[in-house]
Design a protein around this nucleic acid. Sequence first.
DNA 1: ATCCTGGACTCAGAAAGATGTCC
DNA 2: CGGACATCTTTCTGAGTCCAGGA
Length: 635
Amino acid sequence: MSDGEDDLPLSTRARVAIAGNESDSDDDVPLSARVPGATTGKRKNMSNRNRPAHKRKSSDTEDDNSSDDKPIGSLVDISDRKSTTAGGSAKKKTKRADHEPWRAKRGAKQMWSTLEHNGVVFPPPYQAHGIPLVYDGHDVKLLPHEEEVATFFAVMKDTDYAQKDIFVKNFFDGFKKTLRGGPHGFIKDFKKCDFTKIYMWNLQERERKKSVSAEEKRKVKAEQAAAEEKYCWATIDGRRERVGNYKVEPPGLFRGRGEHPKMGRVKKRIMPEDIIINIGKGAKVPEPLPGHKWKQIIHNNTVTWLCGWNDTINTKDWKYVQFGATSSIKAESDIQKYEKARKLKLAVDAIRRDYFKKMKSGSVLEQQLAVTTYLVDKLALRAGGEKDDDLADTVGVCTLRVGHIDFLPPSTIKFDFLGKDSIRYLQEHEVDPLVFHAMQRFCKGKKKDQDIFDHIDPTKVNKHLQTLMPGLTIKVFRTYNASYTLNKLLKETTPAGDSTVPMKKAAYDAANKEVAVLCNHQKGVSKAHDAQMEKLQDKKKIIEKEIAALRRDKKDTNKAKIRTLKERLSKLELQMKMKDELKSVSLGTSKINYMDPRITIAWCKHNDVPPPTVYTKALVEKFNWAMEVEPDFDF
DNA sequence: ATCCTGGACTCAGAAAGATGTCC
DNA sequence: CGGACATCTTTCTGAGTCCAGGA
C-alpha cells in the first residue's frame, strides 16, 4: 500500500503518536488514492456538480484536508501543542474559538441564573492484555496504545462492519498512524495482519465475565452506581435534576450508519483538555482527572449544556452533556413542542388552501414551496438539509432527487430513498393530481441524480412557513401528524368499556403502529425472526393435529378440551400475526418523541387503563408534566 | 456554527416458556 | 397421574449508547 504520509518529521510524529493525540493527517491522502476504486458513495460527487450552486455545501470540502491541523488544535492540551509546534511542524495553527473569551449569541434567552454540577465520568484507562498481533507469521507484542487500537478491530470480527472495505481501510489507516514512528512501524500490509489471537482472547474474556456469579455482578454494579451517583445530578436555579449523558464516550472505532465514508475511523480518547465546562459563576468547578486540566471554564447561561467537546470524527460537530429527559428544562421544551403542533392543527386548513393555490398559479419557486409543504403535510417527511460528501448519502424532502421517485399514473408516486440513519423509505402514495403534475414538471429534462426541488432548501421552506404561522417549521408537521393520528385512531378503535385492559392495550398498540408507519420508524428484523416464526408455526400445527385427533374419537368429554385448544389456537394466531407485522416497525420512537403524552394519559383515564400499561417507568417519569391532564383532553 | 431533538441498535436483566422433580 | 414448585432455556423489554438530524 502506498502511503505517502511523511509530511511531518518523524520526531514530531513519534511524540504526537505516543501522547495518543495524533492528528487526523491521514486525510491528506485522499481515500481513493490509497485504495484504488474504493469510492463507494452512491452519490459520489457528480450530483454535487449537477446541483445548483446555492444548494451545494461548502465547496472546498475535498475530504477534510482543510481540517487537517484543526483536530490537534482542539484535542491536544495546550502544553502539548506548544511542544508539538516547536518540534518543527511547519503547519500554522489557526487561532480557534477556544482561545477567545466566550460571548453569548445576540438575542439569546437566559436559561438559568445558577448552575452547579460535577462534570463527567471518564471511561477507565486502557488495560493492556499483552496478547500479540501476528504479522507475517510472527508474534508482535504491541505497545499498550497500539494494542488498544488493534483490539478495537479484533473484537469486531463477527460484525457486518468488519466485512466492509471502507471500514477496514479506515481502521487500518488509523492503525498505521498509531504505529508510525514507533517500534512497529514496519506493519504496513493489512493482509499480513492476523488478529485472531486477540479475538480469541476477547471471546474468553467475555465468557469469563458472563460466568461471574449474579451476586458478584450485583455487587460490582452497586459499587459503580455509588461511585457515579454524584455525576447523575446537577442543580439548576436551586433545583436538583437528573443529568442525561454524564459519561464520556469511550474510544473505539466509529460505526456510521449505512454507507458512511468514515466508518472504521479511530475515535480517540477524550481527555479533560478537550472538554469545556459550562457552569454557574461562583459554583465549584469539578475536578478534572489528576494531573490534567479542563480545556476551558465558561459561564454561558443562554445554553443548557453542562460540558461540551469536539467530536473526533466530524471535527466540526460537538458533543454535549445535557440534562436528562425528566428535567424541567426538557419538560418545558416538550410542552412547547406539542403546543406548537396543536396550533398547527388550527392553522392547517389555511396552509392547505395556500399551497394548493400556489401550486396552480405561483412561480416555480412558489410551486416548489407548495409541493414540498404538501409532502411534509401528507407524508410527514423530514426536511432534508444539504450534506457534505463525507457523510452518508441520505435525503429528505428538499434533497429528493429524480431517481428517488417513480410516477405511476394517474396520480400515484412511488418513493424509494434512504432517509435519516440510512433507513429506506419505500412507499407509494396517491397524491393530488396538481401535485402529481407539478412534480412531473420539476423532473422534466433532469437526470436521475439531480434535485427535484432545485429552487429551495429547508431554510426557505421554513421561512415561508413562518409567514403562515409564527414558529412553524417543517418538523412541526411530523409532531402534528403523529399526535393527530393517535388522537383520531384511539377515538375510533378503542373497544367498549367492558373490555379487558389487554384488549385496550392492543388497540393502543395498533394505533401506535399506524403512527410509526406514518413516520417510517423502522427497526432491523431480528436474526432469529424466521426461526421463531417457524417454531410458532410448528406449535400451531401440533395444536391443530390435537384438535383433529379429538374430533375423530367423538367422546363428549372432548368438547371442552377442543374449546380450550381452539382458544389457544386463536391466541397463537394473533400472536403470530402481530409478531410478523411488527417485525420491522419500531413503536418506541413515536411514543417518546412524537405522540403528545396528554393524549395517551387522557385515554388511560377515560378507559381505566393504568399508565404503566402503555408507558415504561422511564416514560411515566418523563411525561410527569402530562399526568394531570383532563380525561376529555382533545389534541 | 452551535445546540438541541430524534433515531436505531445493544445488551443485560426480566419475563415467559420448557423441562424436570417431588409428592 | 396431575399439580405445585424448581430450574434451565428462550424470548422480550427497556435503559443506555452513540450516531444523525433540524434549525
